[in-house]
Nucleic acid binder design. Sequence first.
DNA 1: GATACAATTACCCAAATGGGGTATTTTGAA
DNA 2: TTCAAAATACCCCATTTGGGTAATTGTATC
Lengths: 205, 205
Amino acid sequence: MLRVILIEDDPDVREMLSLIINDTEGFSCLRSFADCESALPLIEKETPDVVLMDIDLPGMSGIEGVRRLKGTLPHLDIIMLTVQEDDDSVFNSLCAGASGYLLKSTSPARILKSISEVANGGAPMSSSVARKVVTSFKPQSPSPLSPRETEVLRMLCEGQNYKAVSEALFISGHTVRMHIKNIYKKLHVHSRGEAVKKAVHNRFI
Amino acid sequence: MLRVILIEDDPDVREMLSLIINDTEGFSCLRSFADCESALPLIEKETPDVVLMDIDLPGMSGIEGVRRLKGTLPHLDIIMLTVQEDDDSVFNSLCAGASGYLLKSTSPARILKSISEVANGGAPMSSSVARKVVTSFKPQSPSPLSPRETEVLRMLCEGQNYKAVSEALFISGHTVRMHIKNIYKKLHVHSRGEAVKKAVHNRFI
DNA sequence: GATACAATTACCCAAATGGGGTATTTTGAA
DNA sequence: TTCAAAATACCCCATTTGGGTAATTGTATC
């Protein structure tokens, strides 16, 4: 029996979901709340298996709610259930610790399936959300750096200095400097920190 | 009609998948190959809708194959279909540009569903893979840095130097240096580059 | 009140870094 | 074969950085 708690400010949606969950074999909606403030203390008491969480809530946002819940109950599985489909909502939710992300257009059957999926170690996502997540891994822009420069930059990211790089690549320190100067020029940066940030961010390394 | 090409070195698996795809309404397996070397030139000719790609192949790996295919056909949807379940295989595949990742234990019905899903902008993944992907967004360790140090580190990541930071935060250059020294100590690093990398990687900023 | 931690200011020094320039050789693509 | 890019190597010098040490203040928390 999967024990679910629901946080959703729209009373109609809340009621409907609660009924659907309770009317299905193997699922039980322990309680439902209209906001995080009232929900959080009780969730920590009741320790449900899964929480369905809206994002746009009065008071504390659902994302902040996730952050706090995961702080006290790291093993709790939380599925976002929201109309928000923008990158920020998705990525901030996942960074906060949500284990799934469904759009409100999701069918009741799919929601129930997602609840059992998340409880079994899955990460149910609406397909457009999943694509966003997967695409975020792919470097968006091709690296402007030559293979050698990429190699040098990778070592800079490890915190190696000129000398270490030159010894590792069997080239002189002068050459390392030249590569680094070219890297800075190509990335439009003027320091190591910026270069590392850009490299990590754009996945050049 | 979804046009599929299959790359899989096991003849039995290849045959079976090919039959299943061709025997299903709305799907067509244009061709199948045992390795990337022979597949790539023909895929660029036939421009299928979806490619099913194994990872462990003779010669070029499936991951490298994805990288090359996405280089020439950026809009092609590729689903990895493999026994490999380790983090490296998953993340390298997605970084290379795969749009989906299924384990070989996936049922034929689910594979067919995934093909249409990926063609419709989704990102089908086996549930354990999806959880890996989602979990990778969550910072594993809470930041050990004080708020002020976090602020300083954020500016270092922007490529600001001591003076710029001190002016922006209305503190003396000496204080900035002290903060940075403490940051290095807490993060166990010895240079700006390393600190930036660690900060970005662990999402301290 | 005591203790602990964060934030702040201060100084010294050696090493690393960034910016400017120039030049040769190798490699690969047109 | 010709040309461009990449990789190699070198010079000078001002500035930045990293490491060490120490002291003061405020704000918590105990």
